[in-house]
Nucleic acid binder design. Structure first.
Lengths: 162, 162
DNA sequence: GGGTAATCGATAATAATTATCGATATTATA
DNA sequence: TATAATATCGATAATTATTATCGATTACCC
């Protein structure tokens, strides 16, 4: 699930405060934002808004649904989180301190496997240049069945034959 | 917008009827389905459910919202259409008679530019093999600004300086 | 043509996200 | 340090895309 981290000089909170300070109109740093950053950067995981709301509530940190969505948007804009379009709802993962990568997503168990690929970076560069397109981001997801779910299916098939 | 077509032996309608006939429980071919297939395959374009509903209505072919969604799902399952996850709503494009390709999507004007890349196919094969992952599909979208929107921005910037 | 059941259309429901707005809390200023 | 100005909060309503429901309609087999 995890790739080697990238060295960073600031804490996520410090980086976020810098982002807030750099906005044209001044933005405030609140307790809810601090709680969210502490929780999110205490582990590496893919998560969605609903999960985060439940997890924070379970930890006694109540942050309202609206504030969770608002703060996630700011964290993405600040470069702390990446936004992933897996199916109908958005997922989020660490961007700050974590290398660029792509995903394999299992359609059976929803597991996300990360991988890095220099080839993809170069395809993006080449294609963008060819079409005079100014690339600002990309989505690359491979959908299918993971090793474990494949084995489970194989085993079941073998059992069915008995 | 268009890549060279792929040779096919059947009309989209014939291919769809074959699909319906091959289902475990028999499915019926209706006037609404015929109207939708005729409309969709009379042009090559990326479209979403809402556009299609409006376009059909404008052409005097009234197909209800529910039926449009239901039939789109069947057309995808039959291999006639590909389903594209561009942002919050689904888009559709020809699959039958049209080669595999990926997209550049302009964030300013929503234009979709198609491109083919053998490198991506091989990345998918390699990564899947490495992780013993059974790949069934993928999404690859490069987001950014197209040539025209870039020029518009440049021109505006130049004018702003006067 | 007649019976059966898949499909249709109208509308209700769902799910994820965004907007609204009075209450609250952060930051600048006196 | 008190206070004023205003960004953010929480509760809830609204929005958007899509799916489910269900009685009416219609395609398909005999």
């Amino acid at each position: 699930m995890s790739l080697p981290a990238v060295a960073v000089s600031q804490s996520p909170e410090a980086k976020f405060r810098e982002y807030l300070a750099s906005r044209p109109k001044p933005q405030r740093f609140t307790d809810q934002q601090r709680d969210m950053i502490n929780y999110i950067f205490s582990q590496h995981d893919h998560f969605d808004a609903e999960q985060l709301i439940e997890d924070l509530k379970r930890d006694g940190l109540g942050v309202s649904r609206a504030t969770v969505y608002r703060t996630l948007a700011k964290l993405v804009d600040a470069g702390l989180l990446r936004r992933l379009e897996f199916g109908p709802r958005m997922f989020y993962e660490h961007d700050y301190g974590y290398p660029q990568h792509e995903h394999l997503v299992c359609e059976k168990c929803e597991k996300k496997i990360e991988f890095q690929s220099a080839a993809i970076e170069s395809v993006i560069r080449d294609v963008a240049q060819q079409h005079h397109f100014q690339a600002s981001g990309h989505t690359f997801i491979i959908r299918g069945t993971c090793r474990e779910c494949n084995q489970a299916k194989m085993t079941k098939r073998r059992l069915d034959l008995i």
